[in-house]
Structures are given as structure tokens and as C-alpha cells.
Design a protein around this nucleic acid. Structure first.
Lengths: 114, 114
DNA sequence: TTTCAGTGCAACCCAATGGTTGCACGAGGA
DNA sequence: TCCTCGTGCAACCATTGGGTTGCACTGAAA
């Protein structure tokens, strides 16, 4: 699972960083509601400038959470659920690992030092 | 599920923000490996100062990912898997919702505009 | 062909944040 | 009792990052 200290370029890194910003989450919500939209269209909904939206979309694209597709003079962005699901699984696995380790330590404590 | 734009004080917000930092993830890894440890002990493992560790632990505690317990003159921190699991579920549900919406939009496009 | 909506690029601003050092304080062990 | 280890607090620094404004470019409609 490679959760160890040598976690350089962890795939979930970009996703977590992208999801950490509330504006970005709102942006993803708006995108998911429409199915696909351009930066300008999204800027009309959110209380930030188009340029800010574009920056966020770039971050989201690097995280694989959206894909960009140019059609004529506009660029439509579409949400991608896959990395979301992958990260969910990663988190879940990590939680499981913690549970295991903590249980093992507790068990050892109860037996070796009574 | 309240994923809407009025997502003030979203419970996963703190968790995502906390998990977004790689140093913090390494810190959690070290903590989970030991089961529990003090800030000073953790500082011996990671390449940052104790004070930096303390700051990170504060963030993690606010996110519910660790709990602090004082024993004598030292404070031992213990990882808490629960918010991790909750966030995993939240992400998974969000991914599911995206899937639903995108499928519905695709379906509508194929039928209403043939 | 002229006009206009949508993008792309760049410079700039300010607040948040990860990190450091220095020092004072309190609890335990020698 | 004295010394020491682990904390807590505060000031401070550099960088990142979210956000804005301004301008140049391009494709499509009038």
C-alpha cells in the first residue's frame, strides 16, 4: 500500500490538496450540477472572478478531478469522479491500517506488561 | 447530504485541510506506527523542529485526527481513525453523486436531442 | 469585415501558513 | 535540593496561494 515515509509523489496528494479549498469544492459542485461548463459560465455562479476560476480549474485538472475539452472558442470542463473514488479508498485503507496497528499495540500492552 | 453551496463549517473541511499537508501525513504515519507518542519523540523522527510538530499536532487535533492526553510532564498524542473513515465515506458518496448526475445528463442528451 | 464573447498571459497584492529560534515554566529523577 | 527533560508561549521570517486587474488574442456571429 506504500503508506510509509517514502511517500514521494503520492497520487492522492494532488487530490487532497485540491479538495482542501472550499471554493474549489463549491466549484466542483457547480460543475457536477451542470455536467460540464466553461470557466466564464462558472464565474457567473461563484462570487469570484473568472481568472480565479481558471486557476482553480487548473489545479483540479492536475489532480485529475476535471478534464478540459476545447470546442470552438470555449473550453468546457467536465468532472471526473474516478480520483475521488480512489482517494476515498485510500483513506479507508489508511483508517483500517490505523485500526490494526492500534489494536495490535493495545493487545501487546495487555499481554507483555500485565 | 448538504453538498450545496451553503457548506459553511463542513465537518470534512478540517480533515481535508489537515491531510493536504505531506509533513502532516508523515507525522500521522509516524504516530500510527508507534500507537502514541509525544511531540518531542516525534520530532526526533521527522526533519522538522519540535515546535513545527506541535503546530501540526494542533491542526490534527482540531480535525479530530489525534487526541492529546497528558501524563505527568509529557503529552502523548494518539491517532483517531474515525474522522478518516467518515471523510472516506463522504468522498465516496460525492463520487457516487457525480456519477448519478453525469449519467442523467448523458441520458437526457441522448433522448431529448437526438 | 466589423464586432463581441471567451480565453490566455502577466503582474501585482495581501493573508495564511509552514518553519525557525529563544526563553520561561513545571514535573521528575539523581 | 538541584538538575534536566519536555512543554508552552511569543516573535519573527519566507513562501505559498487565493484573488484581482489589465491587456492581447482568437473564433464565431452580425
Amino acid at each position: 500500500m506504500t503508506v510509509g515515509p517514502t511517500e514521494a509523489a503520492e497520487p492522492v496528494d494532488d487530490v487532497l490538496a485540491a479538495l482542501a479549498d472550499p471554493t474549489r469544492r463549491a466549484l466542483l459542485d457547480a460543475l457536477a450540477a451542470r455536467g460540464a461548463a466553461s470557466a466564464s459560465a462558472l464565474a457567473a455562479d461563484l462570487p469570484v472572478s473568472r481568472q480565479a476560476i481558471v486557476k482553480h480549474l487548473t489545479v483540479l485538472e492536475r489532480a485529475g478531478l476535471v478534464t478540459a475539452a476545447r470546442t470552438g472558442r470555449e473550453v468546457r470542463y467536465t468532472p471526473r469522479p474516478q480520483p475521488l473514488d480512489a482517494t476515498a479508498r485510500w483513506l479507508s485503507a489508511l483508517a483500517g491500517e490505523w485500526d490494526r496497528r492500534l489494536a495490535a499495540i493495545k493487545h501487546a500492552a495487555e499481554h507483555d506488561l500485565p
